[in-house]
Simulated scan of single mutants.
Amino acid sequence: MIIETTWGPLEIDERDVFHFSKGIPGFAAEKDFVLISNQDDPFQYLQSTREKYVSFLITDPFLFYRDYEFELQPAEVDELKIEDEMLVRSIITLKDPVEKSTINLLAPIVLNPKLQIGKQVVLHTSKYGAKQELWNMNGRENARDVGSFT
C-alpha cells in the first residue's frame, strides 16, 4: 500500500496500520495511522494513511520520564482489547529553541500491537500535564540518555 506523506510517497504494509475507531481528538475523521521510525531514533511519526498533512511526532514517554505511570479505565482496556501487551507513546510539540519542546503526558496514545488498534486516552486524574518539558534540565536524572534532535 502506498500512502502520501509530506516527505513523499511511502510504501507500507497494510498489516502495520493501526485503527483508531474514534480518531484522535481534533482529528476525528482520521482513523488509520502507521508508525514511521528509524531504528536507532527514539522519535517516531504517527502518520495518517489518508491525509498526508496529518502526522504527529511521538516518542516512548518512559524514555524521558522513568516514573511515568497511569491507569487505564476498564472500559478503555475493553475497547482496546488489551490482554498482555500494549505500546504507549506521547505526542511531542516542537518549540524554538528545541530545548523548550514539550511532551503530552496527560493524553498518551495507547496501542494494541497484536490487533493493530489504538486510542489517545485522556487521563482524568494525573500529576502530569499536556505540556511537560521534554528535556527537564532541572530533573535530568529522571530521563534516560536519549540524545537530542541534532
Rank of each mutant, 00 (worst) to 15 (best):
P108N: 08
V17F: 06
D41P: 00
S90H: 02
T59P: 07
I24T: 04
F62M: 13
Y65H: 09
S48V: 02
A143M: 15
N104R: 08
E69W: 01
V77T: 13
V77D: 10
E51K: 10
K119V: 00
N38K: 14
Q73G: 00
D32P: 01
H124W: 06
S126A: 07
Q44L: 15
T5I: 03
L57W: 07
M86P: 00
T102S: 13
L63G: 13
T49W: 06
V98T: 09
L46Y: 03
G26H: 02
V146A: 15
L10S: 03
L111D: 06
R144N: 11
V34K: 06
L57M: 11
F20I: 01
W135V: 03
D13E: 13
L57V: 10
Q73R: 15
Y53G: 02
Y68E: 00
M86L: 14
Y128V: 10
Q47A: 04
L94K: 05
K131P: 03
V98N: 06
E14Y: 05
E76C: 07
A107D: 07
R50D: 15
Q120A: 01
P25R: 09
Q116V: 02
S101N: 10
A75F: 07
V88T: 14
I117E: 09
E99G: 00
T49V: 12
D13V: 00
S90T: 07
N112F: 02
P74G: 12
Y45W: 15
K131C: 00
L72F: 10
L115I: 08
Y128R: 12
I103K: 04
E11S: 14
E30M: 09
G139F: 13
T49Q: 06
E141A: 11
F149E: 09
G139I: 03
I2H: 12
D32M: 03
L123E: 01
I117N: 11
K100H: 13
F43W: 14
